[in-house]
Design a protein around this nucleic acid. Structure first.
Ligand code: FES
Ligand code: FES
Lengths: 132, 132
DNA sequence: GACAAATGATACAATTATGGTATCATTTTA
DNA sequence: TAAAATGATACCATAATTGTATCATTTGTC
C-alpha cells in the first residue's frame, strides 16, 4: 500500500537537491554520492525527468542536470504520474469482466471519497514546499 | 498505488455475500460461482479469514463458511491488514540505511497527515456499512 | 585532435509482490 | 463407504519494481 515508490522518492530527493543548488549544474555522479543512491538507477530516473521536461540536461564535460521548471510549479502528482502511472486508488479488480456493479458499488463510492481527498492533498505539495 | 489488492477485494465481497446470507452456511463452490472468482484462490482466501477468526468454518458435506463476528464489527483495515500487511503509506525508502532525516523530513510529515486521514476513513467502513 | 566527463538510448537482469494452482489429509453427512 | 466439504501446504506464473550494463553521442579541456 505504498503511496510513493522508490523511484519517485529518489526523483523527489534529487529534485529537492537540485532546487536547493540555485541554478548550479548537477551531474549524476555528485548527486548519487550526495543522496546515497545507486548511480545508474538515479541516472535512469533523471533521464526520464529530463525527457518529461522537468529537468534540463547538458551533455559533455561539465554537464549535468538543472531544473527546467520553477520548484513552485513542480507538484508531487506530476512526478508520481511519471513513475507510477495514473493516480487511482480505486479500481475494481473485476474491471476486465466489466463488473456491472461499478456504478452502484458502495465500496467504490467510499474509496473514491478518500481518493479525492488524497489527490487534493498531494496536489498541494510542491518541490518548493518540500525545501521551504 | 492500489489501496486495495485483489485478494482483499475478493475477501470483502465474499464477506458481504456471506453477511447478506443471514446465517446460512456458504460453501466455497457456491460463493465462487456467485462472485465469478477463481475457486481455488477464493478458497485460500477464506481459509485465511477462517484462521484469522473472521469466519467460522464447518468441514464435511454440507459444510462451508459463516461469519464469526458481526458485520458491524468487521472493518476494512482488519481485512486489509490480513492480506496486505501493515497499513502504512509513508515509509522512507531509505529505511535500511537508517535515513537520518526521517524525523525532520518534510515529505514524511506531509504524507503522514494524509495517512492519518486515510486510516480514519477506512476504519469507518464496516462490512455492515457496505451492505447497508 | 585526443581524451575525459558527461548525458541519451536501450536492453537486460534480479528481486519482490501478487495472483493463482495443485494436492493430499481430514472431517462430516448421507 | 462415498461424496462433499475444509485444513494445510507446496508450488507456479505473472507483473511490478528496482536495479545493471553498454554503446552512442556531445562537449569542454589539454
Ligand atoms: S465489485 Fe466491481 S465495483 Fe465493486
Ligand atoms: S528521505 Fe528518509 S525520511 Fe525523507
Amino acid at each position: 500500500m505504498k503511496l510513493i515508490t522508490r523511484n519517485t522518492d529518489y526523483a523527489l530527493r534529487a529534485l529537492c537537491f537540485i532546487a536547493k543548488s540555485d541554478g548550479k549544474i548537477i551531474p549524476v555522479s555528485g548527486l548519487a554520492r550526495e543522496l546515497r543512491v545507486p548511480q545508474p538507477f538515479l541516472r535512469k530516473i533523471l533521464q526520464v525527468l529530463s525527457k518529461k521536461r522537468i529537468l534540463k540536461s547538458l551533455k559533455g564535460q561539465g554537464g549535468g542536470f538543472l531544473l527546467k521548471r520553477s520548484p513552485v510549479k513542480i507538484f508531487l502528482p506530476d512526478i508520481m504520474r511519471i513513475f507510477q502511472g495514473k493516480l487511482r486508488l480505486n479500481e475494481c479488480s473485476l474491471k476486465k469482466l466489466l463488473c456491472p456493479e461499478q456504478k452502484t458499488c458502495p465500496l467504490r463510492k467510499k474509496i473514491s471519497g478518500i481518493e479525492r481527498y488524497v489527490l487534493r492533498e498531494l496536489n498541494a505539495i510542491s518541490i518548493a514546499s518540500l525545501i521551504g
